[in-house]
Structures are given as C-alpha cells and as structure tokens.
Amino acid sequence: MNYYELKLSVSPGFADIFVAELAEIGFDSFVEEDDVLLAYVPEDQYNEEAVREIIGRYEPLTGPLTFETSRMEKQNWNAEWEKNYPPIDVEGQVLVRAGFHEMDTSGFTHEIVINPKMSFGTGHHETTWMMLAHQLEIDQEGKSALDVGSGTGILAIMAALRGAKFVSAFDIEEWAAENAGENVGLNRVENIVRVRQGTIETEPAEKYEVVLANINRNILLREIPTYVQYLTPGGTLVVSGFYEGDLPEIQDVADASGLELVSVKTRNGWAAARFRLV
C-alpha cells in the first residue's frame, strides 16, 4: 500500500487538534515537528476535500495554514535491519537463517532460509519461535496444512519440511504474499506450498489436518470459529500472537468452538497454544 504524507504548517498548540481531526478521515499515524505536523494516510483513503474542510474550519482561529502532500511509494523500509541479523535456533533442531548467513548447519534437523523483505516471520519474535517449536511436536507427515496470515511463509515452509503433502498459505498484505512465494522457492517446497494474497473469507472451502495462525488476540477471538470450519475432526489448531494474560479469553472462544487445549508454550510474556478439534 502506498501512502500520502501531508505536511501541515501549524503551531504546536493546535497540532493535537489536527491529529484528532485528521484521524477521523483516515489518517493513521503522525509525527509532530516544530511548527509542522506530518500526517500519513493510505493512498486509497486520501480525500483532499475533507482535509481542506478541516483546515478551513480552524483558519479563523489559527490564521492562514499551508499544506503540501507527497506520495510515498512502498519500499522495503526494513532493509537496514535485514542486512545483518543473527540466525535463529529453535530447540536445537531448527535453524532459521537468511541467504547471507554462511554457516555450519550440521546438527540441525531442519534448515529454513528466509529473506524477509519487510514481512513478519524470521524466528526472532517469540511467537514465531514458539509456533515452530509446536510444529516440531505435531505429526505433519503426509498431512495438509493451512497457514493463516503467513508473513514470510516461515510456518508454511516448516510444515512442508515436516512432511506435509499440501500447504495453503495466505496473507492480507500483497507484499507479504509475494515475499512468502520467494521464500517458498528458496526452500524448494514450491510443489507443496501454495501462497496467495487474501483473507480467511476468500479461502476455498477445504479441510485441513493442521491450521496455523500467528496473528493477534483480537483477530483470533473473531476468527477461531471460522478456522474450525477448515479443520478435519481430530485436527490441530496452533495459534499465537497474544500475551499469556489473554490465554483465558482465547481458550473460552476455542472451547465454544469444540476445541480442546493440548499444550501451551510461553516465552517473555507471549503465548502459543495448541488445540485439537474434538
């Protein structure tokens, strides 16, 4: 998604008021500098008329205001971090590394190569690490798996390396879907993993033996009942992206959906839970 940057000259006393007004018309983030407010809006939500209306309403109080907009093309803003970061070891069994890492990989059962390009899922975050650790404990041999919100595709690739015969992965971000496709290729599992851009609503109605979802609490609370519709009886759902403190709420929704808690992993306050469809 490309963004517009709006640069508005405004005294600091009014900056917060413009933040509030612009937030009402689709602007989602802001930076306050001396006498300048920078406001950012996704390209498809930018409405110059609405901006002029707001400015016109406050000019009697603030005096004349000037603004300019510029379009910011999407680019890999994370490139600097991605140039140099340490590889990840999951339980001494999985090595997650980038293409630039040259290292001895003997001793690891699985090796996953991820070149992330501003997508989530390098193993550095606790939730990714725990999802992979759960996957080490699940029998995926010859099974089918669904990866919801796949980011770099790391979990889908792991399922394939663990023997899954078919994996469907999707992400709402076009950028992530493209990156997952590249990583699937790097790990030579393109015959097993299918990646597309989209959401659970556009996932073809099929049944999977394993469903993996590392997203966040709010989306999981809303979507767990839907994931269950994609699970075969006895199938496994692994979810993460939430805090330990949010587990009871997640568990309530899972219970109501006919899921039974199998095991929970926690790491630095984050949790990952594995359920079985009864």
Binding site: Y3, E5, S29, V31, L38, Y40, P42, W77, M118
Partner: peptide
C-alpha cells in the same frame, strides 16, 4: 511498516 513507522 508503512510511513512514518517504516522510514523512522
């Protein structure tokens, strides 16, 4: 990761 978070 879009602006301003991305570039900042």
């Amino acid at each position: 990761p879009s602006p301003p978070i991305g570039p900042a």
